[in-house]
Design a protein around this nucleic acid. Structure first.
Lengths: 169, 169
DNA sequence: TAGCACTGCTTTGAACTCGAAGCAACACGT
DNA sequence: ACGTGTTGCTTCGAGTTCAAAGCAGTGCTA
């Protein structure tokens, strides 16, 4: 490790290759998974992630904010999706008894059913798209390496960017 | 390797870990990069990718369809973005002399300038977000592994999914 | 060379996302 | 108690994406 750790203005060939492959895989997997979920249970990927989080949570209930983390980057987006899921009866919303401000989202039976119906196909699709080409050892390496990257990303607070510019009409 | 290669209905812990880390990293990187591009040159990630593709192309010109591959999954999305880029003068559109149907998009000088202005920051952001936590060896492994996955994804023709359901009003 | 399928792009309508602004409930300071 | 600031969510407006339908131009076949 050198002393000077200024970020370089170019990437090594290996880094470029990794970056391109990463964006390509990420885009293709996302797109394919989205189609699978849509046809299997009429869910968007975001909706599936929300249901899956609720399914993982103890009691199948979470506050809105906790539910949103990493899935949607705006509160309003979550509100919108929660409304959709509630209208379909997959989820219920109720004000928290502890804190009247916060809304607790709970996985309804119908939601659990949809999740159960969609899950195997989702797993199969991910396996097919991402892991079928990889050896067990490579999967382990991938998990380790991406885990490191994820740790750093979580640790790095997202520096606030300039607000999105409005188009001048 | 066994004979029976039916897709499993569950993932190994390593696969699960890799999948979670992958989606997390992919989502966070995308989001951060998007902000960086927006503030550096008022470009969306898609727009940046389109300009970058044109920059890579010989003569800086590509047919619409060739430009879209992997960036946008609908023709109409590309039409929309091409219009925006053309309005900003970053790109020109003209019917192809060979084939009157197809439109050739060419990188304008202003587009090249914006690309040059944005690129270093983009590289720096990607380095910071994705590679700062990884050793050179890990980057090489990542490139190799994701390259394998990408190859398979490219080889697998996207099986047509059921059309997106309309909501019943 | 006429018919007919196909290709390449655009138009259109609906769905989804975000940021800013707004509103109620909470958590303090005095 | 009573402002004042903060938190949690929703509403609102604008922008982006997709799929389906539409429209020329092209190529194939008889």
């Amino acid at each position: 490790m050198g002393f000077m750790t200024e970020p370089p203005t170019s990437l090594t060939p290996a880094q470029l290759g990794a970056y391109f492959a990463f964006t390509e895989v990420s885009s293709l997997v996302r797109h394919s998974v989205e189609k699978q979920l849509r046809s299997a249970g009429d869910l968007s990927y975001v909706q599936f992630q929300l249901l899956a989080r609720l399914g993982d949570a103890p009691d199948g209930r979470l506050r809105m904010t906790d539910l949103a983390d990493g899935v949607v980057y705006s509160r309003s987006g979550l509100t919108y999706q929660a409304q959709l899921l509630e209208q379909r009866g997959l989820v219920t919303r109720a004000p928290s008894p502890d804190d009247e401000r916060s809304t607790v989202v709970a996985l309804a039976d119908a939601g659990r059913a949809v999740l159960a119906a969609v899950f195997p196909g989702h797993i199969e699709a991910v396996h097919e798209l991402l892991f079928a080409a990889l050896s067990d050892r490579d999967v382990g390496e991938l998990a380790r390496i991406l885990g490191q990257a994820a740790d750093r990303l979580r640790a790095t607070p997202p520096r606030s960017a300039a607000p999105r510019q409005r188009k001048t009409p």
